[in-house]
Amino acid sequence: MRQKIVAGNWKMHKNAEQTEDLLNELIAEIPTESDTQVIVAPTFVNLASAVDHLEFISIDVAAQNMHQAESGAFTGEISAEMLTNIGVKIVILGHSERRALFHETDALIANKVSTALAHEMKVIFCFGEELKDRQKQQHFNVVQNQLHDGLFHIEDAAWKNIILAYEPVWAIGTGETASAEQAQEMHGFIREIIRKNFGATIAEDVSILYGGSVKPENASEIFSKPDVDGGLIGGAALNAADFLAIINAI
């Protein structure tokens, strides 16, 4: 059985007090006997306190990004060693906002993946097409290329530390809506690509999360699809009731 995962990307939201309040709300209601892995990704300045706060709680902490270099003159950047030193062992890489707003390329993301794996971190690897790609019927090609160029350089053994997160960028904050069937179609395609390149065992074992505006209202339908193993949640993760409803939808 593949690991079911719900990860909340808090982006640039929540100060220290608000972070503690949201964590406390989650702690109070988090299912204690669930097999679902729950991950939260606060801002860099709140990672250490979140790790301490969740020390004895079944909620993992992820960073939203990291630099590919081990150290150096990179003002404002954070290294893998800095993250692992405070107990953060998961990192989100390749998020659509990093690609679009900060011009991160597949080659750069590939370097970040290599660095994270060298530090034995788990990687939530994000990828997905934009609206123009889907309108031109290029969405499968875009996804295949992002996977190939950003991730397929890794060794077979490293796949145990990879979580895939498909983000249809066209369905995030655009007014467009992706159906559960569209999510399953792409997830099935992704798993088949991995099978062709790395074999059936890795393809069946890797968790593929859906990151296209999952909400309490649509979570159950999306998560019911055979190749959807959970979600990378944005806005709904900032509200404890909504995030918990999504967790309980798996």
Results as ranks from 00 to 15, higher is better:
residue 139 H to D: 15
residue 140 F to H: 12
residue 140 F to M: 08
residue 140 F to V: 01
residue 141 N to Y: 08
residue 142 V to K: 07
residue 142 V to M: 05
residue 143 V to W: 01
residue 144 Q to F: 06
residue 145 N to K: 14
residue 146 Q to N: 11
residue 146 Q to C: 09
residue 146 Q to D: 09
residue 146 Q to P: 06
residue 147 L to R: 10
residue 147 L to N: 10
residue 147 L to D: 09
residue 147 L to K: 11
residue 147 L to Q: 09
residue 148 H to N: 13
residue 148 H to A: 13
residue 148 H to R: 13
residue 149 D to E: 14
residue 149 D to W: 04
residue 150 G to V: 11
residue 150 G to N: 11
residue 150 G to Y: 14
residue 150 G to Q: 11
residue 151 L to T: 07
residue 151 L to G: 07
residue 151 L to W: 08
residue 151 L to S: 09
residue 152 F to V: 10
residue 152 F to Y: 14
residue 152 F to N: 09
residue 154 I to D: 12
residue 154 I to T: 09
residue 154 I to C: 11
residue 154 I to Y: 12
residue 154 I to R: 08
residue 155 E to L: 11
residue 155 E to T: 08
residue 155 E to Y: 09
residue 155 E to G: 07
residue 156 D to A: 15
residue 156 D to N: 15
residue 156 D to G: 05
residue 157 A to V: 13
residue 157 A to D: 14
residue 157 A to L: 12
residue 160 K to R: 15
residue 160 K to Q: 15
residue 160 K to W: 07
residue 160 K to G: 13
residue 160 K to H: 14
residue 161 N to V: 11
residue 162 I to F: 10
residue 163 I to R: 02
residue 164 L to R: 07
residue 164 L to V: 09
residue 164 L to S: 09
residue 165 A to Q: 03
residue 165 A to V: 05
residue 165 A to F: 04
residue 166 Y to L: 10
residue 166 Y to T: 05
residue 166 Y to E: 06
residue 166 Y to H: 10
residue 166 Y to S: 06
residue 167 E to W: 08
residue 167 E to K: 07
residue 167 E to C: 07
residue 168 P to G: 06
residue 168 P to D: 05
residue 168 P to R: 02
residue 170 W to K: 03
residue 170 W to R: 01
residue 170 W to C: 02
residue 170 W to P: 03
residue 170 W to S: 03
residue 171 A to T: 08
residue 171 A to F: 10
residue 172 I to G: 07
residue 172 I to L: 13
residue 173 G to M: 09
residue 173 G to E: 09
residue 174 T to Q: 13
residue 174 T to F: 14
residue 175 G to K: 07
residue 175 G to D: 09
residue 175 G to Q: 08
residue 175 G to V: 07
residue 176 E to Q: 15
residue 176 E to P: 05
residue 176 E to A: 15
residue 177 T to N: 13
residue 177 T to E: 12
residue 177 T to S: 14
residue 178 A to Y: 05
residue 178 A to V: 06
residue 178 A to H: 04
residue 178 A to E: 03
residue 179 S to H: 05
residue 180 A to Q: 07
residue 180 A to P: 02
residue 180 A to M: 05
residue 180 A to S: 15
residue 181 E to S: 13
residue 181 E to G: 06
residue 183 A to K: 03
residue 183 A to G: 08
residue 183 A to M: 05
residue 183 A to D: 04
residue 183 A to S: 11
residue 184 Q to V: 03
residue 184 Q to K: 04
residue 185 E to K: 04
residue 185 E to C: 04
residue 185 E to H: 04
residue 185 E to L: 07
residue 186 M to A: 06
residue 186 M to R: 03
residue 187 H to S: 03
residue 188 G to H: 06
residue 188 G to S: 15
residue 189 F to N: 01
residue 189 F to P: 01
residue 189 F to A: 02
residue 189 F to S: 00
residue 189 F to Q: 02
residue 190 I to K: 00
residue 190 I to L: 01
residue 190 I to H: 00
residue 191 R to S: 05
residue 191 R to W: 02
residue 192 E to Q: 14
residue 192 E to C: 00
residue 192 E to R: 05
residue 192 E to S: 04
residue 193 I to P: 01
residue 193 I to D: 00
residue 194 I to H: 02
residue 194 I to A: 01
residue 195 R to K: 15
residue 196 K to P: 01
residue 196 K to M: 10
residue 197 N to L: 01
residue 197 N to V: 00
residue 198 F to N: 01
